[in-house]
Design a protein around this nucleic acid. Structure first.
Lengths: 357, 357
DNA sequence: ACCGCCCGGTGAGACGTCTCATTACGGTGC
DNA sequence: GCACCGTAATGAGACGTCTCACCGGGCGGT
């Protein structure tokens, strides 16, 4: 068993209260007592029991974060930003994965509540609208900051990128490169941020005076096969094939690019390409992929800041903080060279790469 | 303030002990009392205070994991395996990042101790040998399982891949493809697993009857620039240029590949290539990269299993568990096509990709 | 009818910490 | 010499939970 303050007190020959005062530094203690206690701490290799302290003080110095899928590279980057900011301010971070399941997400949040975390960072699993009671229970007893995706109709602090504007920036770039037939492939539109990005797409086209062609709006998902089907069908159409493709997130973008490569369509040769998010190891790709880059680390750390501010001012009805961070556009090869796609329908020599299972 | 068992008791008209018995299910309770308590729980939306429970029972149901750098894709995969196994068994997982710093690592472990986690998963920051007292304090009061890299001279449970054998497998494959001049680029050799992998390299060569050429052992690091210098120097040498390159980890492998592409050397055209670990989004690379794949998810989950077993049998001097998982070789294009490198020293047309900052 | 037993239920106490009302003590000012 | 004051130190109590010794009462066996 680890040593306790009581044992320290016995060894140092002072009372338990004095030991506590030395440790917390809250009250003034004579230098001689201080030294005796510090010596005892060293001798016994004492470490305070944060559990007991939490019970007494009702402060756990712990935050929780729930993400839909920790293996998607985007989320660990956010986690790192959050972990860094949290620890800098003396907070622990408990990381949980909702596996994109609403019920699991609810379980995870309940667990964090039971653990008495002081606040929760949430990248919502998304999907359905929240029932009012779920929405209410969500923010009950400990503040929540939503990241990346905002659950609809939920009045809560949030930190995310200016999705609409960021998508607009990407599309505008493609237009500036001379493209007029620009397709967009999205993730699941049940997610609020995907809707925003799609809105950015149409907005950019309209501002550029290009009519929006519904046939170029490809409603995708995070599933490789589904995206592959959509893209291949969209690209191999007999006429009016888009000259550029924009993906509204990295998972979908990677799936799209991969599926088109498999049928022999390459960027920038056969189509210009840009995507939200870094495709990992991206600057090694030949060609490099033009990307809308989100400030992931900052998103995590800012979210922690907002959360801690909310924790501090819990009682006063502080107004909501809704932080919108700017994204940046990294222009690389995949969108650089304007290329008129060949009129031929059949893809170029299908040099499908060998791919052992 | 959240409701407590005492309030439940008052509302249900029973004693606090009965409430506790209903919640823990430890003792037998009449059906009528049970219902009254359950109703009260529902009415007050009660959630047990795990902090208080932990203090009382001396069990936190929490594990900690410390990794050197959560943004390296390898580690989140391990974390996910660990988180999954932990939660399945009713444990929380606190994730901390040591930023590859020994002192920060010590801080993080001390924090976890203070938080009274029941056990710790550690991917050591590595580097120097442990002082005896640090080694002793490391395993004091809560068990530790080391992952991936084993701190030298530390008698502790561990889970990692058969590094030597896995490297041997990779090299043997390159030899089978007809290569005899095979270079190896390593990470920092202060890490035990890097040493093992290098050992696998020499072992494979010797078994194949190929003399080990010290000039082909490139001691690298995780730094892009350093690796670039080493690889470019090694590959552009006037004579005896290797026909194949093996990287002992993904970070170094990606750096190597990237740096060689930058000077116009491509795989498999100019050299065969294989690497430890997946280069993320790898199966989209053209060409695909032959890789030694570690069972990351399983490493994380197995480590949790070992840790929980150790926790359960803490007292009995259980022998050490040292799990060695097999890696698999994913053969892709980068090593498939035997190619004799041209005798010319100057690299082919340097079509360095544009790379905006 | 009485004893013993078991079932259900009770409530005090302990886990390790912090807090706070209280005490002890020495020094100052009159 | 005494009242007063400020500084140190003290130790009981509370945080919410679980555990355990204890108790009342119904029931079966003798």
């Amino acid at each position: 068993m680890p040593p306790t303050q009581k044992e320290l007190a016995k060894l140092a020959g002072v009372s338990s209260g004095t030991v506590s005062n030395v440790i917390s530094g809250s009250s003034t203690v004579s230098e001689s007592s201080r030294q005796k206690v510090l010596d005892a701490i060293r001798v016994l290799n004492y470490q305070p029991n944060l559990i007991a302290r939490s019970l007494r003080t009702n402060r756990t110095h712990t935050l929780g974060i729930v993400v839909p899928d920790i293996t998607i590279p985007f989320f660990p980057k956010i986690i790192r930003g959050a972990e860094s900011a949290a620890r800098e301010r003396g907070y622990f971070l408990i990381v949980l994965d909702s596996e994109s399941s609403l019920s699991r997400e609810a379980d995870m949040i309940a667990l964090l509540r039971a653990q008495r975390v002081e606040g929760i960072l949430l990248v919502a699993a998304g999907g359905e609208k929240l029932s009012p009671e779920r929405a209410a229970s969500l923010t009950l007893h400990s503040p929540v900051v939503c990241l990346d995706r905002l659950p609809l109709d939920l009045d809560v602090d949030s930190v995310c990128v200016d999705d609409c504007g960021a998508a607009e920036m990407g599309i505008s770039h493609l237009m500036a490169m001379g493209h007029r037939r620009i397709a967009v492939i999205t993730g699941p539109l049940t997610l609020q941020n995907e809707q925003e990005r799609l809105r950015g797409y149409t907005q950019a086209l309209q501002q550029g005076g290009i009519p929006v062609d519904p046939a170029l709006i490809w409603r995708g998902s995070f599933e490789q096969d589904e995206v592959a089907g959509i893209c291949q069908k969209g690209m191999i159409r007999p006429s009016g094939r888009p000259t550029a493709l924009f993906a509204t997130n990295g998972v979908t973008g990677l799936a799209a690019l991969r599926s088109l490569y498999e049928v022999g369509l390459t960027t920038p040769h056969d189509f210009a390409f840009a995507t939200f998010d870094e495709l990992t190891a991206e600057d090694f790709f030949k060609p490099g992929i033009t990307s809308v880059i989100q400030p992931t680390f900052e998103m995590g750390s800012r979210a922690v800041e907002v959360l801690l501010r909310r924790i501090a001012k819990e009682t006063s009805e502080e107004p909501r903080h809704n932080v919108r961070l700017p994204a940046t556009l990294m222009v690389r090869d995949s969108s650089q060279h304007r290329h008129i796609s060949p009129q031929t329908n059949t893809p170029p020599k299908s040099k499908k790469p060998t791919r052992p299972r």
